[in-house]
C-alpha cells in the first residue's frame, strides 16, 4: 500500500518538474514552481503581513487548483478567528473567488487542524486546501508535512500550509514562499488599486531560490501579473531565464 502511494507520489513529482500538465492562461515563469499535487508553504514576512499572506495563499489555491469545479477548503484554528478576523464572502467575490466553492473548518487545536487538513488533502475531488497554523505547533513536524505531501500526491489537490508568526523550519514542502503586501498602482484620485504582493521564493526543491517578484492580482483575467520592481533586479533575472525570452533573443 505504502509502495503504491510512494510511486504515485514520484509520478506526481515527475509531472511537477517536467512538463506542467495543465498550462493556465497567462501563466508566469514563477508559477511553474507551484507543482500541482504537492505541498507548498507560505510564510508571512511580518506579523502585520498576515492578511497579505492569507490572501496570496487563497489566490494561489484558487488559481492552481486542478479542476474548475473542485472546491477549496480553508482549515484554521478557532483562536485565529479572533486575531485575523473571519473570511468575508463578499470580499472573496471581489477577488474573483466564488464563495460557494469555499468551505471552512474552524477547529479547536493544531492537532485537529493537521488531522483534518490531511484528511481533506487525501480526498479525491478537493481542489486545494489551505491549512493555517500560527506559531510553531509541536504537531507540525517532518512527519506531518510528509503526510500532507503524500496526501496531495494521492488526490491531486494543491496543499498550502500558511504559517503565520513563524520562521521556516525543515519540512517536506515542494516550495516555500514569503509574502508581504506591496504598494498598489494608484487609481484616479490616489485611490488604492488592485492587490499587490511582494513575494520571495525561499526554497524550491531541485531549483534555484531567492527570487523576488512583485505580483498584482488581476481579478478579471484570474491571473497574477508582474509589475516592475522598483528596488531589486531579481525579478528581471528570473525573466531572462524564461524560455519565450530566449526565443526572442535567438
Amino acid at each position: 500500500m505504502n509502495i503504491i502511494s510512494l510511486d504515485s507520489h514520484r509520478a506526481a513529482l515527475a509531472t511537477g518538474t517536467g512538463e506542467p500538465t495543465a498550462c493556465r492562461a497567462g501563466e508566469m515563469p514563477w508559477e511553474r514552481s507551484i507543482a500541482p499535487a504537492a505541498l507548498h508553504e507560505i510564510f508571512a514576512a511580518d506579523e502585520i503581513e498576515e492578511g497579505a499572506a492569507a490572501a496570496f495563499a487563497l489566490l494561489l489555491g484558487w488559481r492552481h487548483r486542478p479542476g474548475r469545479d473542485r472546491p477549496l477548503f480553508w482549515v484554521r484554528e478557532q483562536a485565529s478567528l479572533r486575531r485575523h478576523g473571519r473570511l468575508y464572502a463578499p470580499g472573496l467575490a471581489e477577488l474573483g473567488i466564488d464563495p460557494a466553492q469555499l468551505m471552512q473548518a474552524q477547529l479547536p487545536d493544531p492537532v485537529a487542524v493537521l488531522r483534518a487538513g490531511a484528511d481533506i488533502a487525501r480526498t479525491g475531488g478537493v481542489g486545494a486546501v489551505v491549512i493555517e497554523l500560527a506559531g510553531r505547533p509541536k504537531a507540525l513536524d517532518l512527519t506531518a508535512s510528509r503526510r500532507l505531501s503524500l496526501a496531495a500526491a494521492q488526490s491531486g489537490a494543491l496543499v498550502l500550509v500558511l504559517r503565520l508568526d513563524a520562521t521556516p523550519s525543515p519540512s517536506a514542502c515542494w516550495s516555500r514562499w514569503q509574502v508581504a503586501a506591496a504598494p498598489s498602482r494608484p487609481l484616479a484620485a490616489q485611490a488604492p488599486g488592485t492587490p499587490c504582493f511582494d513575494v520571495t521564493l525561499l526554497r524550491l526543491r531541485g531549483g534555484p531560490a531567492g527570487m523576488q517578484y512583485r505580483l498584482e492580482w488581476d481579478r478579471d483575467a484570474q491571473a497574477f501579473h508582474d509589475t516592475p520592481l522598483s528596488g531589486g533586479m531579481a525579478a528581471l533575472v528570473a525573466e531572462r531565464t524564461d524560455p519565450p525570452a530566449r526565443q526572442l533573443g535567438g
Binding site: 492578511g51 492569507a54 490572501a55 487563497l58 485575523h84 478576523g85 473571519r86 473570511l87 468575508y88 464572502a89 463578499p90 470580499g91 472573496l92 467575490a93 471581489e94 477577488l95 474573483g96 464563495p99 460557494a100 498598489s184 487609481l187 485611490a191 488604492p192 488599486g193 488592485t194 492587490p195 481579478r219 478579471d220
Partner: peptide
C-alpha cells in the same frame, strides 16, 4: 448564494478578512 458581481477593472471594494 447571491453575491454582487464586481465591476470589471475595479479594485476589491470589500475586505477579505472581516
Amino acid at each position: 448564494q447571491r453575491w454582487s458581481e464586481p465591476e470589471p477593472g475595479e479594485p476589491p471594494l470589500r475586505p477579505l478578512h472581516l
